[in-house]
């Protein structure tokens, strides 16, 4: 096991290896992700029973909860990638941070927007300064900071390392932010869904949620990998393997993927 991990680690240093292996991962992860999302959405929209208090507007949680969970996980991914970049100088980690940041920001925005939409029928207002919404908003700002920092620094290596530092500090700060924001009295419900404890909702409600969450995560990994492949191609465009690849793909019109 250990040697296997070491081998994998070593291989991860080679963008070319990752470029190929990621393609085969995407072939599995993208269909799984889309399938889970579609299944979860359809189940949640049409088959799950309505909530006895919120009625049908509760169905928004199948959008809201997965995107909120993913949004936080992506920042933690970036923080870990930041540590890997600074300690082991793995270029792949830099690409992960770069590609993951806008994806994370988009899911944070989705979580905020779906939460706001849900707030209208439930709370009677678009925006409530409650603990979770506020923490999510701060997370969105953290994403903006990382993206802005990368765009401000011209030199790519420097920008990558600077973003890594910000991602690490942000990652450490996230629990503190969440905790401090929790000091505010909250209108929000308690955690809808925990991995460790059995949820309070009936299975026909939380099973589709679980499926959607899995779908979102698989989808994210697939999309991240595809983004990283593009980044590899761009950064390595002078190398021989890229030009050979381009020559192969170019011969087949429209087959490039």
């Amino acid at each position: 096991m250990w040697t296997w991990i070491k081998q994998l680690w070593h291989k991860l240093g080679s963008p070319r290896w990752f470029y190929d292996i990621a393609a085969s991962w995407i072939r599995w992860l993208l269909p799984i992700g889309i399938l889970c999302i579609v299944a979860g959405f359809v189940w949640g929209l049409a088959f799950a029973p309505p909530d006895y208090q919120q009625g049908n507007s509760f169905r928004i949680i199948y959008v809201h909860v997965p995107s909120a969970m993913l949004a936080q996980s992506i920042f933690i991914t970036m923080g870990i990638a930041g540590v890997i970049l600074l300690v082991w100088r793995m270029k792949l980690a830099d690409m992960v941070i770069k590609i993951a940041a806008p994806i994370g920001a988009s899911f944070t925005a989705l979580a905020l927007a779906s939460g706001a939409i849900w707030g209208v029928p439930t709370w009677g207002t678009w925006w409530v300064w409650d603990a979770r919404t506020t923490a999510m908003l701060v997370l969105l700002f953290l994403y903006f900071g990382v993206i802005a920092l990368r765009q401000a620094i011209a030199r790519e290596e420097t920008a990558g390392k600077a973003c890594a530092i910000l991602a690490i500090v942000g990652m450490i700060d996230i629990p503190i932010i969440k905790y401090s924001v929790n000091w505010w009295l909250t209108l929000h419900q308690g955690a809808t869904f925990r991995l460790t404890a059995a949820p309070a909702m009936p299975p026909e409600m939380w099973i589709p949620l679980l499926i959607t969450v899995i779908g979102f995560y698989a989808f994210f990994v697939a999309v991240l990998f595809q983004g990283v492949r593009g980044e590899i191609l761009r950064r390595e465009h002078r190398t021989r393997w890229v030009s050979e690849l381009v020559a192969q793909r170019g011969a087949l019109p429209g087959a490039a993927s």
């Binding site: 700002f141 900071g145 700060d173």
Partner: peptide, 21 residues
């Protein structure tokens, strides 16, 4: 942001979220 000529606004963007707690 030390080597960026105009880092002021960027600095605010980066740091203000961290100031929240």
């Amino acid at each position: 942001t030390v080597s960026l000529r105009r880092g002021g606004l960027l600095l605010a963007l980066m740091i203000l979220p961290l100031y929240v707690p």
